[in-house]
């Protein structure tokens, strides 16, 4: 089963935590910067209810921290847990592991992108439409346009897509 691994560390320990996670073999991650207070620090605080007061308190007392998130296999999460515990044994950190029931990934316009980069390059020795000489003609065909140029006279002819004809099913 895959788990959503959330590692909370203080900003100065981000490098150490990231190295430990990379060593364990994570393939992707995302990071969120935040300001937070641990339960020990928060205990006994009573804040005034004005928004300025609450924001001021967070600004003055909360710690700059980072949340590193990644989706990993359960076994790998255990490995990461051990490595982080070892690397950050003298520092503050929190690890959460949340089980994942389902993952849906949509790559959006992947096909369109593939089509855009599909460029053909061809060569043929034929009479040029401009100079009439039998010379190598270079042809570049893109999805929406094409260019042919003569290696003898250098004339470049440009063509634009007019339409497509799809076969009947």
């Amino acid at each position: 089963m895959k788990v959503h691994l959330r590692v909370f560390v203080e900003t100065e320990n981000l490098g150490k935590a990231m190295n430990a996670m990379t060593e364990a073999g994570i393939t992707g991650f995302y990071i969120l910067e935040y300001k937070g207070m641990s339960p020990q620090d928060w205990k006994g605080f009573v804040i005034k209810e004005e928004p300025e007061s609450a924001i001021g308190l967070i600004r003055d007392y909360a710690t700059d921290a980072v949340l590193i998130c990644s989706v990993v296999e359960e076994e790998k999460a255990e490995e990461i847990e051990k490595l982080i515990s070892e690397t950050l044994k003298k520092d503050k950190f929190t690890i959460l592991e949340v089980p994942i029931r389902k993952i849906i990934v949509n790559y959006g316009n992947e096909e369109e992108v593939e089509e855009e980069v599909d460029v053909w390059l061809l060569e043929k020795e034929v009479p040029c439409f401009y100079c009439g000489e039998n010379a190598v003609q270079r042809i570049r065909v893109d999805v929406n346009k094409a260019k042919i140029w003569c290696t003898n006279c250098g004339a470049a002819r440009y063509y634009l897509i007019k339409g497509v004809e799809r076969p009947e099913r």
Binding site: Y130, V141, A146, A155, A156, Y158, Y159, I161, G163, E165
Partner: peptide, 24 residues
């Protein structure tokens, strides 16, 4: 003035028209 590219397998065809010529 024209260009035609056709897939021999499915018959999908693209048509292009001549647009401009650049003479060095």
């Amino acid at each position: 003035y024209k260009m035609k590219i056709k897939c021999r397998d499915c018959g999908f065809t693209r048509f292009y028209n001549f647009h401009v010529v650049n003479i060095p």
